[in-house]
Nucleic acid binder design. Structure first.
Lengths: 187, 187
DNA sequence: CCTCACATGTAATGAGTTACATGATTGG
DNA sequence: CCAATCATGTAACTCATTACATGTGAGG
């Protein structure tokens, strides 16, 4: 079985108790955000499912005003299910990059736009690196977490170096390619 | 509109005419395979849609025995639609890594299994790099294609260096963590 | 005053995967 | 003789996203 939101919730709950809201935060802004995604519409039903399967338990904490927090904890059965799921994951990555597709056709894009897309991507990666740095401070120091953090840091700095080094060359080559294409059309 | 199979087909057809079968090969084994995925069940309907929208044309080439090849070509309207789609892509990457999730919980995995997962992943990345190298030879030499190829090469070699350098350290740390956890349980 | 953060959840919708169905030719 | 390659396509199904629905308290 491939990675799904249920397994993801189980994994997070194995580190600490959490509410659906907190899980979403971890997944969108926390240590997991760099290699995983999940929305409310997936997380809440997943937690409900885990509860009926008795892989987690839930306690409600009343609050004034806000709806009661539903804090989930993993059970022993959940720990076993997680270990099992982790072990049987096919372990293949899914990488979909709109940016690389755009770059593949860089010479078809108007020069102005290409530069804009490129710089926006650099900014995105830089933001991601900054966030990773931020997270590193209040992150559990398990060997796995450190490994993943270092992995992310290396990848991001490598990408950024490459992007910055190659920027002008790419823009230049694309300008030339567009020019020679125009000449061909004219002839 | 985010990246979908229709846009992907259009993009490939803008480089050269192709059949659905050929598009799938490009996407699973070719230059696009490193940052995109699509199955028959998505490609054939996408081509049919593009045809009714007149963004591509189709000619059948009869063959003895096999079903007729349906060779698709992009139209002028298709070129425009592609340029438009490429320009308006949000340009965000989707990266889902089961491997990194597994690594996040490396100390929970049996040592034997962790090593197996790790080495299998290295082998996978190595295969991917070899394939990229292979492709490079009969690849179009546009600035975009070269950029993407160099990008992929750099990322893969960087990952591989990291994975190989960190292997023994990770295994060691996880063994220690597992040991101290056992001691805690015993006390 | 308005927006953000907190906090839960559902329903409609979309997009693509998996598995099936069919069938000839070629190479080991 | 068996597996792989070529070649098209459909239907059932899974999975998750988006948008909606609801409501308070705090801070600028």
């Amino acid at each position: 079985m491939a990675l799904n939101v249920r397994t993801l919730c189980l994994a997070i709950l194995s580190m600490r108790d959490a509410t659906g809201y907190e899980i979403r935060k971890l997944v969108t802004e926390g240590a997991f955000s760099h290699f995983i995604a999940a929305s409310y519409g997936a997380i809440y039903p997943a937690l409900a499912q885990l509860l009926t399967d008795r892989l987690v338990t839930m306690r409600e904490e009343e609050q004034t005003g806000k709806p009661a927090r539903k804090v989930y904890s993993i059970t022993a059965a959940g720990q076993r299910a997680l270990a099992d799921a982790l072990a049987t994951l096919p372990g293949r990555d899914i990488y979909k990059s709109e940016f690389l597709l755009q770059m593949m056709f860089a010479d078809r894009l108007p020069a102005r736009q290409l530069a804009a897309i490129y710089d926006a991507y650099i900014a995105m990666q830089e933001a991601e690196l900054a966030q990773l740095q931020e997270e590193s401070r209040n992150m559990p120091q398990t060997p796995g977490a450190c490994f993943v953090r270092d992995y992310g840091r290396l990848m991001l700095t490598t990408v950024l170096d490459f992007l910055k080094a190659r920027r002008d060359r790419l823009l230049d080559e694309c300008a030339r390619a567009a020019q020679s294409e125009n000449e061909e059309e004219a002839s």
